[in-house]
Simulated scan of single mutants.
Amino acid sequence: MIAAAAAGNAADLRELIQRGATLDARDASGATALLIATHENRIDAARALIEAGADVNAKDKIEDSPYLYAGARGHLEILKLTLENGADLKSTNRYGGTALIPASERGHVETVKTLIEAGIDVDHVNRLGWTALIEAVILGTGGEKHTEIVRLLIDAGANVNLADREGVSPLTHARQRGYGKIETLLVAAGAR
């Protein structure tokens, strides 16, 4: 199962499942075949496993699940499949963050839209004390993708004044980095 998932061989996976292979068997890292398929963005393999009932929330030893990994890496088609098949929007990664936080940090605009539309908490705070908005600013580039993500988060009702653990607001972070377009969006939304 693991090898077929890594290779993206959906036909082999379906045959193995039909023969009674363990759907959520794990490798040494604790990853299921579905998580392995997600790592490689093997959409057809992931679909075959999900259609057979693979657990989209099954975590490996470092707290990644197919749902969380697809969100963090911007594997949009697999993310949508996990959302359609029981993804836990409150599930968190090893940093205590939801899928929205790394998606925002990494500039995955369509992934952020999809997660917001699914109803994810836009103000979730991870163990570092950061929200998706803060990560989009402090770990982003200030470019077009991150600016659009900030706009999406604001439009979704993100608290623009929710500061990090040191009390530094998203607006202050944007100003310190010279991200003028993001600063403008934040100010227009009432940021201080």
Rank of each mutant, 00 (worst) to 15 (best):
G20W: 03
V187T: 07
A156K: 15
L162R: 13
D64N: 09
Y67K: 09
K145C: 02
Q18G: 13
R19Y: 04
I78P: 15
A72E: 08
G142M: 08
T131C: 01
E166S: 01
I149P: 00
T141Y: 12
G190H: 02
L34E: 14
N93E: 10
A11D: 08
M1H: 13
E117D: 12
A5K: 06
R165N: 11
L23K: 14
K145F: 04
P170A: 04
E117T: 01
A118P: 14
M1G: 10
Y95C: 00
Y179N: 06
V56N: 02
T114W: 06
L162V: 00
S104Y: 06
N93A: 10
R26G: 10
P102F: 09
R26C: 04
I36H: 05
E84N: 05
A70C: 04
E84P: 02
G142V: 14
V168M: 10
R127D: 05
E148G: 09
H124C: 01
A5Q: 14
E84D: 06
N126Y: 08
E105L: 07
E183R: 02
D24I: 04
Y179Q: 09
M1Y: 14
A52G: 02
E77V: 00
L133A: 12
A136Y: 10
H75N: 14
D44R: 15
H108L: 12
K80H: 06
N161P: 03
D155F: 02
A156C: 04
R47N: 05
L89S: 10
E166K: 04
G74D: 12
V109W: 02
L16Q: 03
G20H: 05
I182L: 05
T22S: 08
I43Q: 13
L89K: 08
R14F: 07
L49G: 15
N93L: 07
E135L: 13
L115W: 11
N85H: 14
D123Q: 03
